[in-house]
């Protein structure tokens, strides 16, 4: 059951990722990215990461996509309005990406990974919170300062003065 779901989600992931990088329309590209992020969240659910799946839907599929769509609409309006971009796929980038992916796949397949799966945790979110607020408390606080700095920086950069 979960294997079938995984294959369906993987196919969606790959197809929509290809759509993101090949379509000429900016808006379609962002919408395909939205679908990619939703299927990633689905795979997170299958891999016993409910909290991360929900965060993926809220933060990535929700906030990030809307932010990017706002920027697309703001930067394609105006005198030279055009929503399409001519992409000229250069041969060397295709070759580079295929070689890179092949290398990664070769490495993955040449290692025999442990097949025995540990028993699935039942209270993932609780355990994650315990880890985050005890063992990883300092990185957590540093991450919040980083978010604050990025917020202030984005406002300072984008405001009109």
């Amino acid at each position: 059951m979960s294997a079938v779901l995984f294959y369906i989600l993987s196919a969606m992931l790959i197809l929509f990722s290809l759509k993101v990088v090949t379509t000429k329309n900016l808006f379609h590209s962002v919408m395909a990215a939205f679908a990619v992020l939703l299927s990633t969240a689905g795979i997170f659910f299958l891999l016993n990461a409910e909290f991360l799946g929900i965060v993926e839907i809220l933060v990535y599929a929700g906030a990030v996509t809307i932010l990017v769509l706002f920027v697309v609409m703001l930067t394609t309006a105006g005198p030279q309005y055009r929503i399409t971009w001519e992409g000229t796929p250069k041969m060397w980038t295709v070759i580079f990406a295929v070689l890179f992916g092949g290398m990664l796949g070769f490495v993955v397949l040449s290692i025999d990974w442990p097949t025995a799966r540990p028993a699935a945790l039942t209270d993932v979110t609780r355990t994650l919170a315990m880890r985050l607020f005890t063992e990883y408390l300092l990185p957590f606080e540093v991450a919040s300062i980083l978010l604050l700095a990025a917020l202030v920086g984005a406002i300072v950069l984008a405001r009109r003065d």
């Binding site: 790959i14 990722s17 993101v20 990088v21 900016l26 590209s29 992409g87 250069k90 890179f100």
Partner: peptide
């Protein structure tokens, strides 16, 4: 393997696309 494929597709897009947003 799935993650490797996704990473390569993202790499290809980051190298080819012209819009900063994409």
């Amino acid at each position: 393997i799935l993650a490797a494929a996704m990473f390569s597709i993202g790499l290809y897009g980051a190298l080819t696309r012209k819009s900063v947003v994409i």
